[in-house]
Design a protein around this nucleic acid. Structure first.
Lengths: 139, 139
DNA sequence: TAATGTTTTTATAATGATTACAAAAATATG
DNA sequence: CATATTTTTGTAATCATTATAAAAACATTA
């Protein structure tokens, strides 16, 4: 997705495509690394002149409200952000602290009986050790 | 579960059943309300003389490490604790902020292909509006 | 039971992520 | 171009959690 497409995508979802917003969304879409605010900040500060961490918080909160990003709560002390809002799961490695996606089909998620409940978000995540780190430990 | 049973349960899981630990676990088991540290503190401060919030943090971290409690990360700004370590899901209501359990069979959870990964924890949670709050809003 | 060593708890301070707020800058509108 | 609105910024405030060292509780041994 180039900046044009990002702009159109934001606009379609009710987010005015201002420069910094487009750049932050670009970052999320291209890196796909489920960054924390700090990670975004330290990467983009070089690219965007005079970027403030508060702006990143503002923009991400707006993205989540508008439905163009997900806030992932896997560890209690950090929120990670994901521009992929389609159904999928997350795995967090305790060793390298990375978060990776895995595919789940929507119909494979449990469908609990919650009569009268309105369900807005579904989250499925795993914690453990990724194959890369598991290999290193063994060796 | 009375205090005797709680003590035995803790002991079996490698946690020395000291007084405050037993009371905190009793609280978790009897209330089943997925409390935050603050909720536990304000409820137990009346019952346990000279209880410190740091102790609750210590004890809960120990419980989680020992596998007798789960730390739930649903909202980024709070950790909730659950003494029910069996497979089940959680629903968080955006209106009343309460967290409730729902049944899931272990075999109904998605089983992603993650070759070589070690999976320690599985979490499935939903966010939305519970039936009670949904009714109130409609009326 | 008394003496001693270890573990646990406490109180305070420190940390770290997030939000509140008001001023400055950017953007849109007439 | 002038004005009104929205966004961003920088600083300070907030809130949950952890670090730390002293005090208290507990277990062990004589």
């Amino acid at each position: 997705m180039d900046q044009q497409q990002i702009s159109a995508y934001l606009l379609k979802n009710g987010v005015r495509p201002l420069q910094k917003r487009v750049k932050i969304m670009s970052y999320l879409v291209s890196k796909r690394n489920h960054p924390t605010v700090d990670m975004i900040y330290s990467d983009l500060i070089h690219e965007i002149n005079g970027l403030s961490k508060t702006t990143i918080y503002n923009v991400l909160n707006l993205f989540v409200q508008s439905g163009v990003a997900l806030a992932l709560n896997i560890e209690g002390n950090e929120i990670r952000y994901d521009a992929d809002t389609s159904t999928h799961g997350h795995f967090k490695c305790k060793v390298c602290t990375g978060v990776i996606d895995f595919r789940i089909k929507k119909e494979d998620l449990p469908n609990p009986m919650l009569e009268g409940f309105r369900i807005d978000e579904q989250h499925f995540y795993l914690k453990g050790v990724c194959s890369f780190c598991a290999n290193k430990i063994e060796a």
